[in-house]
């Protein structure tokens, strides 16, 4: 038996609901879907790739509410190794 199942705490479903709601409500309000965000992500990655190296798989983009405004957060970690 998995010991984590005994000792590890499952996240409360109310917390999961709250997190999921934050995301969908933000997307509904800004009127932008996951598909648009993915597409924007791809296009941005294309442009950025012309200028510097980064690991595409590690790149992330998300929409968040901060107070009364919405922020689009793009995270493209710079990859020195290449």
């Amino acid at each position: 038996m998995n010991i984590l199942k005994i000792f590890g705490r499952k996240p409360k479903s109310s917390n999961i609901a709250q997190q999921r709601l934050k995301l969908v409500i933000t997307q509904d309000r800004v009127d932008i879907g996951n598909r648009d965000i993915k597409q924007m992500h791809r296009e941005l990655a294309e442009v950025l790739a012309r200028y510097f190296n980064f690991t595409i798989s590690a790149a992330q983009m998300s929409l968040r509410q901060e107070g009364n405004s919405y922020v689009l957060i793009a995270d493209f970690p710079y990859d020195n190794a290449r």
Partner: peptide, 17 residues
């Protein structure tokens, strides 16, 4: 259900909406 963490609380709903 709120106490057990199986339902979003009043404050959560107000904050979201």
């Amino acid at each position: 259900m709120v106490r057990k963490g199986n339902m979003v609380s009043k404050d959560d709903v107000v904050a979201l909406l």
